[in-house]
Amino acid sequence: EDEVKKIVKRLIENGVDDEQIKEIVKRQGVDERIVDKVLKELK
Rank of each mutant, 00 (worst) to 15 (best):
I24Y: 10
Q20G: 10
K40E: 11
D18G: 06
I24D: 02
V25W: 05
K6H: 08
E19D: 13
V4E: 01
K43M: 09
K26A: 11
E32P: 14
R10T: 14
E23K: 10
E23S: 09
E13D: 12
N14T: 11
Q20E: 13
K40S: 11
L42M: 08
K43R: 15
L42V: 07
I21Y: 00
K5N: 04
I21G: 00
R10L: 15
D36F: 06
R33D: 13
I7L: 14
I34W: 07
R10Y: 15
E23D: 10
R10M: 15
E19G: 08
E32F: 07
K22V: 09
I34S: 03
E1N: 08
V16A: 09
I34F: 06
V30K: 04
V4N: 01
V25K: 00
K9A: 12
D2Q: 10
K37C: 04
R33H: 13
Q28K: 11
V8T: 02
V25E: 01
Q20F: 07
V35D: 00
V35P: 00
V38K: 01
E32L: 11
I12Y: 12
N14V: 09
E19N: 10
K6Y: 08
L42Y: 05
E41D: 11
K43W: 07
N14I: 13
V16Q: 06
E23G: 05
V35G: 01
E23I: 13
E19C: 05
D18V: 15
D17I: 07
I7D: 03
I7S: 04
L39H: 02
K40T: 09
K9M: 13
V25S: 03
K43C: 04
D2I: 08
G29M: 03
Q28V: 08
G15M: 05
K9I: 12
I24N: 02
Q20V: 11
V8M: 07
K6G: 07
R10K: 14
V30F: 15
L11S: 01
K37D: 05
D17V: 08
K6C: 07
K40A: 13
K43G: 09
L11W: 02
V35W: 02
V25P: 00
L39Q: 02
D36R: 06
E23Q: 11
L42A: 04
V8A: 03
E19M: 11
E3G: 06
V8G: 00
G15N: 06
I21H: 00
K22H: 05
G29K: 03
V4M: 05
E41A: 11
G15E: 03
D17M: 10
I34L: 13
E1C: 06
V16W: 15
K6L: 13
I7G: 02
I7P: 00
K43V: 06
R27L: 13
R27M: 13
E23F: 08
I12V: 09
V38Y: 08
K43P: 03
V35E: 00
V8K: 00
I24C: 04
D31V: 04
V25Y: 05
K22F: 10
Q28H: 13
D31Y: 04
D31N: 08
I24H: 05
V38D: 00
N14C: 11
R33C: 06
Q28C: 11
V4S: 01
E19A: 13
E1L: 14
E3F: 12
G15H: 05
R33K: 13
E19Q: 12
N14P: 00
V25G: 03
N14H: 11
K9S: 09
V38P: 00
I21Q: 00
D31H: 08
L39A: 01
R27W: 07
V16L: 15
V4A: 04
R10D: 14
I34N: 02
L39F: 06
I21L: 04
D31I: 04
I21M: 02
K22I: 12
G29I: 02
D31C: 03
D36S: 09
Q28L: 15
I24S: 03
L11D: 00
K40P: 01
K5Y: 14
E13V: 06
D31R: 03
K5D: 02
N14A: 15
I24M: 10
V25D: 00
E1F: 14
V25Q: 03
D18F: 14
E23M: 12
N14G: 10
D36Q: 09
I21F: 01
V4T: 04
I34Y: 06
K40M: 13
I24K: 03
E1G: 05
K26W: 05
D2W: 09
K5R: 15
R33Y: 14
R33W: 15
I12M: 15
E1A: 08
D31E: 10
D31W: 03
L39V: 03
I24P: 00
R33V: 10
K5Q: 05
E19I: 10
K37T: 05
K37G: 04
E3Y: 14
V4Q: 01
K9D: 04
V38R: 00
D18S: 10
L39C: 03
V4R: 01
L39R: 03
L39W: 03
Q28N: 09
I34A: 04
E41H: 06
G15D: 04
K40R: 14
L42D: 01
V16H: 14
E41M: 11
G29L: 03
L39S: 01
V30S: 03
E13H: 07
I21P: 00
E19T: 10
V8W: 01
E13Q: 12
V8D: 00
V35H: 01
I7V: 08
E13M: 13
Q20M: 14
E13F: 09
E41T: 06
L11T: 00
I12G: 02
I34D: 04
V4Y: 02
V35A: 05
R27Q: 13
D2V: 09
I34R: 04
K5V: 10
E3N: 08
K26H: 07
I7K: 05
V35F: 07
I21A: 02
E13K: 11
D18A: 12
K37P: 01
L11H: 03
I7F: 13
D18T: 12
R27N: 13
K9F: 09
K22G: 02
K40G: 08
V8L: 06
K5L: 09
K43H: 13
D36L: 13
K40F: 12
K6W: 11
G15L: 04
K40W: 14
D31L: 07
I7M: 14
K22L: 11
V8I: 15
I21W: 01
K9R: 14
D18P: 14
V35S: 02
K9Q: 14
E23H: 08
K26T: 14
L11F: 04
D17S: 15
N14F: 12
R10A: 15
V16K: 09
Q20Y: 08
K40N: 12
L42G: 02
E32K: 06
E23A: 13
E3V: 10
I21V: 05
Q20L: 13
D17K: 11
E41R: 04
V35Q: 00
K37R: 12
K22P: 02
Q20K: 13
L39T: 02
E41Q: 11
G29H: 04
V16F: 15
L11Y: 05
K37Q: 09
V16N: 07
D2C: 05
K40D: 08
L42H: 03
G15I: 02
V4D: 01
V35R: 01
Q20I: 12
Q28R: 10
E13N: 08
D2K: 07
E32M: 12
E41G: 06
D36P: 01
K9P: 00
I21T: 01
D2G: 08
K37H: 06
K43D: 05
D17L: 10
L39P: 00
Q20C: 05
I7Q: 08
I7A: 06
R33A: 14
Q28A: 13
L39G: 00
D18E: 15
K43Y: 10
E32S: 11
K6N: 12
I34E: 05
E3C: 08
E32I: 12
K26Y: 06
V25R: 00
E3K: 08
E32N: 05
I7T: 08
E41F: 08
V4P: 01
D31S: 11
K5A: 07
K6S: 12
V30L: 13
V25F: 15
D31F: 04
L42R: 02
G15Y: 04
I12E: 02
N14M: 15
L42Q: 03
D18L: 14
G15F: 04
D18C: 06
R10I: 14
K22R: 14
K26E: 05
E41N: 06
G15P: 00
I24E: 04
E19L: 11
D17P: 15
K5E: 05
V30D: 01
R10C: 08
D31K: 04
D2T: 07
D31A: 09
K26I: 14
E3H: 10
I21K: 00
E1I: 14
E3M: 12
K9N: 08
E1H: 12
D36E: 14
V30M: 11
V38I: 15
E32T: 08
D2A: 12
D17T: 14
I7E: 07
K22Q: 04
E23P: 01
E19V: 10
I21S: 00
E13A: 14
D2H: 08
R10P: 04
V4C: 04
E1R: 07
